[in-house]
Amino acid sequence: MKPEGQLNSSSDRLRDPSAARPPRTSIWLAFVSIGAVIVAQTYAILTSPAEGDMGHLQKIMYVHVPAAWMTFLSFFVVFAFSVRYLWQRRENDDLLAASAAEVGATFNGLTLMLGMIWGRPAWGVWWVWDARLTSTLVLFLIFVGYLALRAFTDDTQQKARWSAAVGAIGALNVPIVYMSVKWWRTLHQPPSSPATLDPRYTMGLRLNAIALLLVMIYFIRKRYEIARLERATEHMAEAAAMGGK
């Protein structure tokens, strides 16, 4: 909104690049989160009894459902920081939104693959054009478009503004796609709640969700760190090229 403001902030960085030294993400967070996933999966597999209709197939729930939750959470982060970027024009908000988008797209792809692997034995089909499946696929495609837009735009300011707009509007589309395909046809069961889930499954699902949340936090932080480093390097290179002896 204020072009003077953004000029100031970038020239500040040009003056002193070390002031914006990006923080280092501890590798221990990676070990802890990966370890948490191993523990949670082992616990869930060992404690859950065979399900009435599905038998042991129910165990795919422990990876499929948390992956879907993390997808939505990541894209919510994209939406929030995209809107804040358009509002306040802080460069770091753009980088964080982009990091969350890449992580979210990864989890989104994983959710889709796991859903197909589960759907084949449970429903008899790899894919149906049903509410959950279609909207999850559309979500994936929207954020693939987002990442492609970033890849094909060179100017950093333009990249930030455009991807923030695409991220915010894309996220806005998600509930509508979900509603529309829900009316269209439905096969995927409604979301389970503790009331419809045997307590012996609930605990395992919660543990797995927490473990995958840790993984997601590590992924986004690490990706953000990389984005900050790359941007800081670019700024220094620009300053050097402009004759900042």
């Binding site: 990966i34 999966q41 197939l57 165990k59 795919i60 990876v63 994983l110 693959m113 692997i117 034995p121």
Partner: peptide, 17 residues
């Protein structure tokens, strides 16, 4: 054959992560 699907699901998860 269900066991194969379960193994595939967990394998895919770990490959992606």
């Amino acid at each position: 054959s269900n066991l194969n699907f379960i193994i595939a699901a967990y394998a895919v998860t770990w490959i992606v992560i």
